[in-house]
Amino acid sequence: MLKLKFVKTLVVASAVSLVAATGALAFPEKSIEYIIPFGPGGESDISARFQQPFFKDKFGQDLVVSYKPGGGGAVGWAQLNSMAGDGYTIMGINLPHIVIQPAQKDVGYTTEDIKAFYMFHYTPDAIVVTADSPYQTLEDLIADAKANPGSVTMSGSGKATANHLAQIRFDKMAGIKTTYVPFKGTGASVTAMLGKQVKAQWGYTTVGAAQGDAVRMLAVAMEERHPLFPDVPTFKELGFDMVGGAYRGMAVPKDTPDETVKALSDMFGEINADEAFRKQMLDGGFALLDVGVDGMGDFMKARKDEYIEAATEAGLLN
């Protein structure tokens, strides 16, 4: 109890000093803990590692990345609100995870529990094949799937994930039936595609960036072509209204004061605006996104409706 009071006092104090003369300069006074609710090496980890040096550069404090894997992220998110709400603890969040997981089962948190303050990038969905695949274009894949329903196998990371939802949505739009093979993480799903265990992969543009000439992307789910892949068409160009992927951002414990949240949002916005940072992210195949704390409500609502609809149609939610 005493400890909690102490923390609250601290929070109030820091909030007051924040609002007072110095503005954003008083925060942060010490290193910020950045918890990734997954194991190391995935897209969430890598993009956080990209932010790390820029944070230190701009704000003089360390951004300390730690991992709390388990339950596909659920373990971390379920504990987020029991952590200290002083702005010095933030946690990576992912869409569609935080929408689909609580909608499916009781995982110890709800989507509304998560106080997101910045969404900084997304990895656009993409269909990836090996360089020597018979599928030269998206049309080839669709034709094969129409001729042999169910025989086109596509790997992806897990079930009820961005990859899986993309597969369901695209199958419906194109009027085809493909077989989705879930793997543990993007790395395993890429390996299966490269090893020709499956015919194609539902992956992200990051796969194209990492694998270079070894793979070919048939289409990407973006509004415009990704600057790194000027030759790869968007789904939109090909007549399929698909834009999206896995969105990543950060959240704070619920009781973090609004001023602190705003300050954090501004800080990460500043990192996102840095040209060097943008270039690094784009070179990695990521697509940048700038949703700060102000636009978060609308953004989350739109995503939530979209995911719930797709998941309900797919029979993932009962």
Binding site: P69, G70, G72, D106, G158, K159, A160
Partner: peptide
Amino acid sequence: VGVAEISADIRLTFGSSTMIGG
């Protein structure tokens, strides 16, 4: 025990949220 790695079902936790992580 916990969230199944590739199928996203929650197994053998018997309703306990501490066991979700497996």
